[in-house]
Amino acid sequence: MIIDIKDLSIRYIMGDFKDIGLKEYIVRKIKGDFTVREFWAVDGVTFSLEKGDMLGIVGTNGAGKSTLLKVISGIMRPTKGEVRVEGNVSALLELASGFDGDLTVRENTYLRGAMLGYTRDFMNKKYNEIIAFAELEEFQDRPFKQLSSGMKSRLAFSIACLVKPDILILDEVLSVGDGGFRKKSEDKMMEIIHGGATTILVSHSLDQIRRLCNKVLWLDKGKQVAFGETASICDKYKEFIEKKKITKK
C-alpha cells in the first residue's frame, strides 16, 4: 500500500486570533471578547490506495478536502489517527501561489523544483522539457509577474508532472489553461498513472473524475460519506448535489 489512512481526524482552530496585534490581543483578553472556535475539519476518514490508483476527492466547499491533502503532503499533522505515506510526494495545492513575481520564469522554475525536492542536476536536465511542455519558450527571462494566470498554472503543472513522482497530489489543477492545454495535461496525467504513480485529484468537475479516476472519496463536512467504486459514488454524489439545489430553491 502506498497510502494508508486510518481513522484520520484533524481539529482546526478558527477565531479572533488571525491578523491580530499584541495590543488588540491584550485588550480583547481583558474584555473577554476573544473567542477561539475548534472544529473537526476532517473527522474519521479511512482509506488506502495502491500503486497506480487514481483517487478523486469530491465534496462541497468546506468538506475538508484541502485539509486532508495538507496532511497527506506533510504540511499538517493529524490530530488523531494514522497516516502512512510511502514514496516522495509532489503536491500541488493552489498552483500559482508560492512563486516570486520579481524573479524570472527560469529562476522561478528552479526555485519551485527545489521546493518539490528535486536536485540541481535533475533540474538542469529537465528544464528545457518543462518549459517546452508549458509552452513558455519565449518568456523564460521575463519577470514572472508579467505572465497571465493561465501561463502561471501551466508552468506549475509542468514542473510538478515532468518528474515522475511516486505520489502526485493535484488540487483543482486540471481546470487550468485553455482547452488545448487541458487535453495535453490530462494525457500527461494518464501517462504518469500508467507509469505507476499514485495520484490524488480534487476536482469539482464530475466528468473529469469519472474519466480519470478509478476510486472516489466523498467527504461532507469532514465526514467520510463513501469510498470506493467511481461510477456508483459519482451517481450518488450527483443526486446529492441536485437535491441540495432543489432544497435551496
Binding site: 520579481d102 529562476e107 526555485l111 527545489a114 521546493m115 525536492g117 540541481r120 533540474m123
Partner: peptide
Amino acid sequence: QFLFEELVKRDFKN
C-alpha cells in the same frame, strides 16, 4: 541544499 541555495539567490536578487 538546492532549495537553500535558490532561496539565498532569491533574497539577494530581491
